[in-house]
Amino acid sequence: MMSYIAHGLSEKDINNIVKYIRDFEGGPYPYKKYDTKSAIIKVDSPYSLEETISNVKDAILGKNFKLIRTQQVNKGLVENGKENNNQVIIYFCNFNFLNKALAIDPRVGMFLPCRITVVQSEGKVSIMATNPLNLASFFNNKELNEVCEEMHDIYTELLEEASL
């Protein structure tokens, strides 16, 4: 069969068609047990910013993830020393998990590495992460949905553990 690129379709068009056709399957959506209406998963922490960051790191290590780095949100964008220390990102990864996800669809890498953000605003400390289930909807791929569900559960557990 002749490639549809040869018929004049762009790769983007083809990807969109594949996604559209997959929708005919009638799901894996909707998720019944999950909240897909929120862009983020967020909890308030009863601890100080420093304690919360430490708790998040402990929780990440406890789940066999590797800490990659901790940095302020605006690091690299502002002069050294002028970063906002009240907004801290903790990047982490499980390379086995990452390798599995990339093997399903290399485009999933744009949601990586895993990230939890700790923010102190108006005296209140919050822990947040992007909701992976919203990302899953971009692909409509059952295997990726399972990965995103797993990631959603991991994020939820990490946030709960760090704020307990």
Partner: peptide
């Protein structure tokens, strides 16, 4: 953009999880 990230993250803390922007 430093100014934009600073302003957005202070006014709308929930957007912080999506900042800075990224391209794979």
């Amino acid at each position: 953009k430093a100014d934009e990230v600073n302003q957005l993250s202070i006014k709308h803390p929930d957007i912080i999880s999506f900042l800075p922007l990224k391209i794979s």
